[in-house]
Design a protein around this nucleic acid. Sequence first.
DNA 1: GTCTATACATGGATAGAC
DNA 2: GTCTATCCATGTATAGAC
Lengths: 203, 203
Amino acid sequence: MPAMPQAAPDAATRARLTAAAIGLFTRKGYAATSVREIVESAGVTKPVLYYHFRSKEGIYLETLREAMEEFRSLLDSFAPCDEPVDAQLRRLCSALHDLFLRRLDLVRLVHSILYGPPQGAPFFDFHAVHEQLVDSIRRLVRIGVERGELGGADEEGMTLAVVGAFNAVSETEMLHPRRGCGRERLNRTLTVVLRGMRAGERP
Amino acid sequence: MPAMPQAAPDAATRARLTAAAIGLFTRKGYAATSVREIVESAGVTKPVLYYHFRSKEGIYLETLREAMEEFRSLLDSFAPCDEPVDAQLRRLCSALHDLFLRRLDLVRLVHSILYGPPQGAPFFDFHAVHEQLVDSIRRLVRIGVERGELGGADEEGMTLAVVGAFNAVSETEMLHPRRGCGRERLNRTLTVVLRGMRAGERP
DNA sequence: GTCTATACATGGATAGAC
DNA sequence: GTCTATCCATGTATAGAC
């Protein structure tokens, strides 16, 4: 019975390589990480990496795709519900914040590539993931306006205000990585922003 | 009369080098920019660069220091006044937004280093400039609270909300660099946030 | 101060044996 | 699949003449 999918004999080697790679890429960036470092950190030799992945770009793209799945799946799983939209926005931002804290190095890398100069790293479509995040918030805002829970005709301004509040806290977290103290900060910042978004305020 | 400061004979050469360097560093990043590219872009040869600056790190740090002066001086020149704080906050953000648009590549570089992995670039204290920016906003918020123009005891939340709104617009600008359309967007986003910061709203 | 030519290290990638 | 040994391009930096 040949060619049974017997859990791939070399799966362990691949896994060690991807783990080493994602760690180094996210902590040092693409250009500053050498193939030598990756293979040493994984306890293998160079040809092993080039056998399993085709190149440095190859292992970079594959490990990143894998790592970004977690973000995509969180956003995909977030379906709007009957709850008041301000509470939903808080829940979404809070869940994202938890994930960001757990993968802070990855978030750093994404941030630097999304907003920074190319730095020689091969193209990866972080933009799409970021758009998905913004769209999730935009959709909730729109629902809030339709329901009459949020006021003003400026959906885009409200969306940017929420995204901004979330980003400001995330970026503070990146600058001062003292684990966990940001959850309450996020809530308080959102309180300010959401107060400006409620319907029925004086103009 | 020896050693008169006759405008430095080689000032032009230095200027061409720094101009070429800042352009390449901000567009490509530190690691992805080679000394060869810099000198070719400046129309000189390698030893000229090593004579005037001591190394690649040297010209990087010196050109950045020079470029960041513009940001520092804008922040230094902004003194709080009698105007209502919401208008002052709008003015400050608007002035910063103009500067960001003019130096978008530089902002990108700063962003990627401030929030991203080290990438092998030598240390430059962007953090201090960023703190100065946040402090300028924080100071205005505090004044607003003291005057009773802004409500709530949460000065930090309000500061982050304003910083976030500004950053969200700046980052949108970095992602979609279509010149100029962001000014009104900034104003509208600030409108949402500032509405949430006014005194006398229902809790 | 500015050139030509070059030293020297590092990094990505592969050949060929096992 | 995994190893040893090596190729080759690129990059920083400098020696030494002018």
